[in-house]
Amino acid sequence: MQKLNLPKYNFKLKNSENKVLIFDNLRKKYFVLTQEEWVRQHYVQYLIQEKQYPVSLIALEKQLVINNRRKRTDILIFDNLGNPDIIVECKAPSIKITQDTFDQIASYNLKLKANYLIVTNGLHHFYCKMDFENENYVFLKDIPNYN
């Protein structure tokens, strides 16, 4: 798999039916190792190990319904009261981050009302803080550490 612009982490990998699988510590099972899953697993570890977010506040592939269509957030982090705080949209490293990517995560946030949005392809990371009063977002240099 491609080297990412994130710290290196150790993952449990195995082969099954000619596919490489990666163990997801949060969901406690193996998933097919796609490029997007590679980014998701690295970013989750980054949030836990570097930014100190508690595992108990992180949900992966959380389902939501928007305009009668089922969608899934890649990573959703809740605050201590159980409210959505951060949405992370992960793309494969080969996928360029475009306005469509921001539109996708913004549509999720119309429903979730999270305070921060993160878009990453593992190589480039974009951090936004929501400004609900002015109905837009402000780009940040980094996401805050868990406090």
Rank of each mutant, 00 (worst) to 15 (best):
M1V: 11
Q2A: 15
K3G: 13
K3I: 15
K3V: 15
L6I: 04
L6R: 07
P7C: 11
N10F: 13
F11C: 10
L13P: 13
N18I: 01
K19I: 11
V20R: 08
D24K: 05
D24S: 09
N25T: 14
N25L: 09
L26H: 04
K29T: 11
Y30G: 14
Y30P: 14
Y30E: 14
T34L: 07
E36G: 05
R40V: 12
Q41K: 09
H42N: 10
Y43M: 08
Q45A: 12
Q45C: 10
Y46N: 00
Q49I: 01
E50D: 07
Y53T: 03
Y53C: 03
Y53D: 02
P54T: 04
P54F: 02
L57M: 02
I58T: 01
K62H: 14
V65F: 12
I66Y: 10
N67P: 05
N68P: 13
R69M: 07
R70C: 10
R72H: 06
L76R: 04
L76S: 09
F78G: 01
F78T: 00
F78I: 00
F78S: 00
F78D: 00
D79Q: 02
N83Y: 03
P84S: 04
P84K: 08
I86N: 04
C90Q: 03
K91Q: 00
K91D: 00
K91R: 01
P93W: 01
P93N: 04
K96N: 05
Q99A: 09
Q99S: 02
D100G: 01
T101S: 00
F102K: 07
Q104I: 05
A106C: 07
A106K: 13
N109S: 01
K111T: 14
K111Q: 14
L112I: 05
L112T: 05
A114K: 00
Y116T: 00
L117N: 06
V119M: 09
N121T: 02
N121Q: 02
N121I: 01
N121G: 04
H125N: 09
Y127S: 07
C128W: 14
C128G: 13
C128F: 15
C128I: 15
K129L: 05
M130W: 09
M130P: 08
M130A: 07
F132Q: 06
E135P: 04
E135V: 13
N136R: 09
V138L: 13
L140M: 10
I143Y: 10
P144K: 04
P144L: 01
N145Q: 11
Y146D: 00
